[in-house]
Each structure stands twice: as structure tokens, then as C-alpha cells.
Simulated scan of single mutants.
Amino acid sequence: MDYPVAPVIREALEKRIVTDLGYPMWDEQSSPPPLVEAFAHRMETRYRWRPDPSHARAFTDLNQALQVLLHHLTEPGEPIALHTPAYVAFVATLAEMNRPILPIPMLPDGDSWRFELPDVTGCHILLLVNPHNPTGRAFTRAELTEIADLAERHDLLVISDEIHADLTFAPHEHIPFATLLPDRTITLTSASKAFNLGGVRCAVAHIGPAHVRKQLSDMPGMLYGEANVFGVEATIAAWTHGGPWLAETMKTLDANRHTLADRLPKTIGYRLPEATYLAWLDFGHPDAAEKVEQRAKVLLSPGKSFGPGGDHYARLNFATHPEILEEILDRLSAVAE
């Protein structure tokens, strides 16, 4: 996001700098560790989910966590079910690890999106991105229940990326998938999206399936690295004290998503996102992002990098200041076909 970090986070990092940059002793000093405790408390108070803190562990970010899980739980060539188009880094990870995508296409449906459940024969993992990036879809309880039923019928594990949960716009709500299918769900989350902390590298994985916890616990403790002291301090401060800052930020994001609806040229398709600060724009032709960059000097994320179904699209990050968004829209209007 194009906003400064929350003051409570800055204060927490400044305090860490002036007091102690030595080796952290969280595990020895408390049980559960402070990061896991902050995660569990936030899930319970914000989403009415009571995760078992002993089933959670820290990673440096969601992409690392996903790669570790896929390495342990799947073999090269094994398909991974994924709603498409999908988050660029996940598409890249699956390609790099030779885990082909089994698409669950997100299809236009009035003012929103829908999906059709696929044949998951030969698949053991469903990678759920909820809220969905790039469409901004916040899955309903009915939709999540259908996915849970599918997972039960076909013996699937669900890796649920819920990093955009805090960016859900009312009246929509975020429903943790683990509340529906706890023993089959691995939940991945972080404060990095909602609190603009991507560079500090800290994420939490809550691992519901007992056999997955056993596999990870059998590995050397430092093999996959650790979250650093800045990441942990920033995340705890965000989840514990960042509520007022996030509420104000959500007001700006809400206004910005409606500004897009009001001012985007009619030749560009747009469905109001139910969550995230991302607009999935339908230009109706391939290479839209490249053409917009050349002609309007506006940098969008190319739709083709989001995998199947993204060719005619581009993604716009609207987490910026209103005057900058107005400039973006002026430029798009000037070159709209």
C-alpha cells in the first residue's frame, strides 16, 4: 500500500532497536510464544475462531510456507487445485515446483464472480485464496461449505491463504476455512497485506492435520529459517494495537474502490471487490498492462501472469492517496479504447 506504517508499529520497532537486537528467546520465555498468542487472540476476537496455539508455527512469509508444505505433501507432477486466475507468486511457485494447476475458474456472475467445482481426481491439495486475489471475492459460507464437502469426499487437504482477511469490506465477512474443516485445513496468514509490512517477513501457519504437524516436527528446527525480531515485533503490534489505524485505512480503501466504479471508462470491465485493495480490470484484449504502461504511463500487473483466465485482464492496486488515484483515472480515460 502507498501509506506510511501505523504509528504503533513504528514505535514497536523503534523500541526494539534501542533495547535489544540480540537473539530472541521467545520459545524459552513463554508458551505459547508471543507471536502465536497474538495470532490466536486475533482469530478468536475478530473471526470467532479458536485455533490451538500449539498447532501454529512461524514462517518468513506465505510463499515459503507454501513451498515447504508442497515439498512435504506432494510429488512433482501432482496437480494442485486452485481458483484461477490466481496470485502471481503462487502461480510461479507451482510452475517452479512442477505442480501443475488444476483450474477452478472464477467466472463473471452479475456484479461478482462464481466458480464451478472441478473433477479433482488425482489431486490431494486444494489451495484456497480467501479473500481471493486478484478478483477481490470474499467467499460466502455456502461456497466454503461446498469446498469443504468436496474435500471430504475426495480426501483433500486444504491450504487456505487468508492474508487478505482483514481487508474485507462490510457487509461481507471473512470466514476462516478452518472453522468448517479443522482437521483438513492448513491456514496461512500474515499482517503484511493489511498493515503494509511485506518487507519485514513474518507469517503464521496453523496446521490442523496431525500428520502434517508430525512431518514438520520431524525436520531440523532451523532448516526453514525463522521469522526475524522486526517481523515478529511488527506483527504483534499490528494485531494487538493496530485496529484504529486499520479502520481508518479501510475507509480510504472503501472510498477508492467506489471511485473506480464511478470513474473508470465504460470500456474497462470492473466488479467492485468485496475485499483486498486490488481491482481486477477487464480490458477485453491481451497485453493490456503493457499497452497501458506505454500509452498512459500507469503501471498495472499483467493479467497473463495470474495464470488461466487472466489474458484479457490487468490488476490495479488502488491502495494509494485519492489524488493519485484521480490522476491514474484521468490517464486511463485519456487512452481508453
Rank of each mutant, 00 (worst) to 15 (best):
S217P: 00
V212D: 07
L128M: 08
P273W: 03
L188A: 04
T187F: 01
L126T: 02
M97Y: 08
R315L: 14
A275Y: 10
H172R: 14
A194K: 05
V5F: 02
N130P: 04
L127E: 02
A40C: 13
S30V: 08
R114N: 11
L157S: 01
V129K: 04
E11S: 13
H174Y: 15
G284C: 05
P176C: 03
D111M: 06
A279M: 09
I159R: 04
K214I: 01
D119H: 10
H206W: 15
D330S: 12
M25P: 00
E274M: 14
E44I: 00
H55I: 00
L188E: 02
H72E: 15
E152S: 11
E337I: 07
H71P: 00
F318N: 07
Y270N: 11
R263G: 01
L181G: 01
V91F: 03
D20N: 15
T84A: 02
A336Q: 08
E75V: 11
P220C: 10
L62R: 13
A288Q: 07
G284I: 04
E326G: 03
M97H: 10
D27Q: 13
Y270R: 04
H71V: 00
V229F: 06
T74I: 02
G307P: 08
D119Q: 11
Y23P: 07
R263A: 09
W26V: 00
E248K: 14
I101T: 05
E274F: 06
A38F: 09
A289C: 04
V18N: 00
G208R: 10
V36F: 05
A191V: 05
Y47M: 03
L66R: 15
H72I: 08
M1S: 12
L70K: 07
N317A: 06
M43H: 13
P24M: 03
A6W: 10
V36A: 01
F195D: 02
A151W: 06
Q215D: 05
R271E: 02
H206S: 12
